[in-house]
Design a protein around this nucleic acid. Structure first.
Lengths: 140, 140
DNA sequence: TCGAATAGGGATAAATTTATCCCTATACCG
DNA sequence: CGGTATAGGGATAAATTTATCCCTATTCGA
């Protein structure tokens, strides 16, 4: 595993929440578990962009942070279920609120996100002189 | 700058919010601006762990995402102020709620975070055989 | 005149997170 | 028998984010 070299900042509540929710998929994982998708394979189908490996890693962290519990059924093929702890359940209203705000502002969010992303891409790497060259070739 | 190679997932509101709030310091930056710390130097003093470079970068992203506006005063020494947009203001209640939940659960959060962090460090890298060697040496 | 404060940013390094690849195991279905 | 589904994890690569270092400029105060 990876050993942290910089200690996290843990001054205020905001810092603390950040530690347990920070992770590309964690909020969504919690949300989908809340929705009743308890098994890793179900979660993976709900979040196709996450790989199984990373899903496992983030679930493990959520477990360590006592947001979920893991139950392994000794059957074949294997069966595992994750459930929210009471602690995990208590954060669901926040996730709900965040999701609602996001839904309400969907259009604007999508617009500014895409605009920002574009502003990163459209820095031309090839100088304009190249375009000029093409034009000259055509006009000959 | 850095050009993204993997496109973000933008399916639901949760994804969208993630895009604009994801960043180690962004939520805190918004919060402190909301508290009236408008100038970069003030923000830096409030968040000593962020470097000026990164503070600038994250402020720029918040600006691109229309969460804040930047106002440059043509004076010397330079003076700059960031303010929340109406859009930015509308997300403050969420941040407030997250912070409150974090404060309320401060103790438990601190505990599980530290426990998890410790579990990463205390994986012994030197195999147990070394301990055994020591014991044998002692008993001779 | 030197140092501090103000704001900014390029180049690069380091840290961290996320993804890819590949392997283990078993039962069921056709 | 061969393919699929189930869950898991080590080793390593790639992507991304964050940090470090070092510059520019001006005014004020000691």
């Amino acid at each position: 595993m990876y050993e942290k070299k910089n200690l996290p900042t843990l001054n205020c509540g905001l810092d603390l929440v950040g530690e347990v929710l920070y992770g590309k998929w964690k909020i969504r994982i919690l949300w989908f578990i809340h929705q009743g998708n308890l098994r890793p394979s179900e979660l993976q189908r709900k979040i196709p962009d996450v790989t199984r490996r990373v899903l496992n890693v983030q679930l493990k962290e959520l477990e360590d942070h006592e947001m979920v519990t893991k139950k392994i059924y000794p059957v074949v093929p294997p069966k595992v279920e994750y459930r929210l702890t009471d602690f995990g359940k208590s954060i669901i209203p926040l996730i709900q609120a965040i999701g609602s705000w996001g839904d309400e502002n969907q259009e604007r969010l999508r617009q500014v996100i895409l605009k920002h992303a574009a502003s990163l891409s459209d820095k031309p790497k090839t100088p304009f002189i190249e375009d000029a060259t093409v034009i000259i070739a055509r006009s000959s």
